[in-house]
Simulated assay, not measured.
Amino acid sequence: MVKGFIFFRDGKIPFVIENYRMELFTDDSLLDDFCKEYNFKENYILHGQCFDIGIRGRKATFLVENSMGSTCYLRCYIINMFDKDEEYDSIGLQSPSLDEVFRYEYEYIDMVRAGINLAVEPKIVYKVPFGMNDQKYELEFRIGHDNRLGLLEDLDRKGELILPLHTNEIQECYDITNVLHRLAMFMTSNAEVPFKRITLYRQGLKAGWFYCSLISEDIVGGHGGFFHEFDVMKYIPKILNNIALDSGNKITQSIPLGHLGDFNSMYTPQRFVEQVMAFEFLFDKLDRKNAQNPKFPLKKELECMFNEFPQLLSRTKIPAEMISDQIKEIRRTIAHGYAYYYDFKNDSNTKCLMIFLDKLIKCMSLKWIGFSNNDISNYILF
C-alpha cells in the first residue's frame, strides 16, 4: 500500500493506493471540488508526494486511466528518488522473460569464459533500433553490474533493457513498457510475462521508479531452453518494429496478441474465440481479396493458411481440410449458442486444435511482419 498526498489547487488531498486504485479521503471541501472537476474524466495526470519509505515524502506523478468520485484508477505512476522534479534520460526494464529471449544465461557464460569481468561495469550485448510514435529508439540489452554504485546497485539484477527517453512524460514510459511487454508476450506465447522492476535513470544514476500493473517481483522465467540457438538480431528487430507500430489499445498495423493466455485461460472458449478473431485479422492482412469475398468462408481461410505452412501438420495424419472444418464447427457452436462450455480442459481434441491455431497464428504473424517461409520454418516454433 502506498500513501501520500496529491496536489490540487492550493491544497493537498491524502490518498492510499492499493492494486493501482487510488482512494482520496479528507473532510475538507477540497475533495468535493476535486470530484466535481475530475468525476468520470479519463487519461489525466496528477502530481503529489508519496511516503512509501519513512516520513520523508518523495515527488510522484500519476497517470489516471479514469476516475469515479473520490476513486482514481491508475494506469501507472512514477516515484522520484527525492522530493524534487527529476529529468530522466533513460528507462531500464528488468524482465525475466526477455532475459531468456535475449539469451542472458548463454551470453553471460560466454563472456565469463572469455575473461570479461561483469562486476566492473555492464556490457552491452545487443542493440536493437526501432521506431514508436514517430520517434526513433535504440534498445540496449545489458548484463553485468556497475561497481561504482556500490550498495546502490541492483545486485540481484540479471539483464536489463535500456532505452533513451525523448520526453520527461509518464505516457512515454508507459508506451515503452507496453510495447516491450507485448514483445515478451509474442516471444513466449504467454500473456503472463510481467516485468520485475522498471527504473528511471539520469546520466546512468537512478532518478526514480516506474510502477504499473505489468510489474511483479514474484515472476520467474521458464522458457530459456527454447532460445538456446535463437538468432536474436535476425528476428527481434523486425518483430519489435512491427509491435511498436501500435502502442495503444487499438491495433491496425501490428500483430494481434489478445488471443494469448496464461495457465488458467489456456483452454477456455473465450480464448478460442480470441484465436479466431486474431486469425481473421491476420488473414485480412495477408489475403485481403479472399478475406473480403463472402464466398470464401472461415473453413477455406483456415485450410488455405494451413496449406501455406505445411510444417504445422507434418507430425499429424489429419488433413488440413478436416482440422479446418473442426475449428469452424466449434466456432459456430460457441457463437450461435448451440452449446455452452466452461472450458476445454478435458477435451483433448479441442485442446489440440487450439495448439494448432496458436502455431498457425504465430506463423501468420511472422509472415505479416515480413519473414520468408524459410525464416518461419527455422523459427523456434518448430
Rank of each mutant, 00 (worst) to 15 (best):
V2K: 15
F7V: 04
V16R: 14
E18A: 12
N19A: 15
F25G: 05
F34S: 04
E37H: 04
N39D: 15
N43G: 03
A60F: 00
N66Y: 15
C72V: 04
Y73T: 10
C76N: 05
F82K: 13
D83Q: 07
D85T: 12
L98W: 03
V101K: 06
E105K: 13
Y106S: 10
G115R: 03
N117K: 11
L118V: 11
V120D: 12
K123A: 13
I124Y: 07
V125H: 06
Y126H: 15
Y126V: 12
P129A: 09
M132P: 00
Y137H: 11
R142K: 15
R148F: 12
D156N: 14
I170K: 02
Q171W: 03
Q171H: 10
L180Y: 03
L183P: 01
A184M: 05
F186I: 02
S189C: 09
F195H: 07
K196Y: 10
G208Y: 02
Y211V: 07
I219L: 01
G221I: 03
F226L: 14
I255D: 00
H259G: 01
V276R: 01
M277V: 11
F283P: 08
D287N: 14
R288I: 10
N290I: 02
L302T: 01
M305L: 04
P310T: 06
L312C: 03
L312G: 02
L313C: 08
L313S: 09
S314D: 10
T316P: 00
M322L: 15
I330W: 11
A335G: 09
H336Y: 12
G337D: 04
Y341A: 05
L353Y: 13
C363K: 01
M364Q: 02
S372D: 07
